[in-house]
Simulated scan of single mutants.
Amino acid sequence: MRFNHLDLNLLVALDVLLEEQNITRAAERLHMTQSATSGVLGRLRSYFEDELLVQVGRKMQPTPYALELAAPVREVLLTIQSSITAKPVFDPTSSKRHFRLVTSDYLISVLFARVIQKIHQEAPHITFEMIGPNDFTTDLLARGEVDLMIVPERYILDGHPSQLLFEEEHVCVVWDANPLVGDSLTLEQYMGMGHVSVGFGRNRHMSIEDWFMNQYGFNRRLEVITNDFNTLPQLIVGTQRIATMHRRLARLYAAHLPLRILQPPVKIPVMREFMLWHRTMDGDPMHRWLRERISEFINDLEQR
């Protein structure tokens, strides 16, 4: 198919080439030979009258014009995928759709394990891939490479739909035999203790640390940094350390480990968890069904 003398199949290749910036890797994804992929790049250069990708040392770098093309090309492909090739009639009971979700291990433990069990009862053939948060989480959604993100409010992207799912509070958790802590905590005690915290991504982003720095001008003394929420309570057992964590997860682990849950010495802002999706998926019937079921099941669980 051609539009204004452009073979629209070339847009798929252009999207992959701009993402990979490497002929070999692009050829693998396109299921083409390297020479054929180089030929496609040549045709794209001829049509757009721009080099698009320029060899710099061992790497290929996009030209300024290529960077301008990247977002609209991806948007066109996503629109075609969701609006033109999607089937208007759907049946959850027989659908074999595969959904990629960005969510933390905390959410999987306290809610989504049960949500997926419920969804399986209505749509037994759909499958899921859970992706943990990282430095490129929002980029994945902006490029349409994941179906849903369930994340705190700060990750919401302008221009893409979102929905509030629930709110969460933070509590402090210590080993129940910790001799340094009674039934309550002062801010001085809290800041003087060794802390276990979670950091995500290359820069170990930690929202609570950001909040304490902005509010009080100092950081907690971090003695252990882990990369998932489920290890927080395990890492304080048998120590004099403290962890600040989600109330739901703390309650889950306090039922199985020797832990004590305490109120923080200061009011930590409530965390609001949102469901976020690419705007081109807004009208997709199966995608909409999944969003509705997730929201319904979480509301049911919250009311129990």
Rank of each mutant, 00 (worst) to 15 (best):
F136W: 15
R202C: 05
W289F: 15
L164K: 02
Y155K: 04
S94F: 10
M275T: 08
N230P: 14
G283R: 15
A255C: 11
R304V: 11
V173G: 00
W277N: 05
V16M: 02
D176C: 08
S295W: 09
M149N: 11
Y190K: 11
G192T: 10
R100H: 15
K87H: 14
Q117D: 12
V16I: 14
P233C: 09
F128H: 09
S35M: 11
R114L: 08
A243D: 01
Q34R: 07
F90A: 07
K118V: 03
H5M: 12
A70M: 09
L276W: 00
G283I: 13
N219C: 08
N203P: 02
V115G: 02
R114N: 08
S184T: 12
C172K: 02
E51L: 00
E20H: 11
Q303C: 04
P179E: 08
L111Y: 06
P179S: 03
F112S: 05
L165Y: 02
Y155M: 11
I236Q: 01
V174M: 09
E296F: 15
E145A: 08
L11I: 05
P264V: 07
P72C: 00
I225L: 03
Q234C: 03
S38C: 12
G199C: 05
L53C: 03
T226R: 13
P264K: 02
E292V: 04
I116W: 15
M60W: 02
T127K: 14
Y65W: 15
G182L: 03
R43N: 13
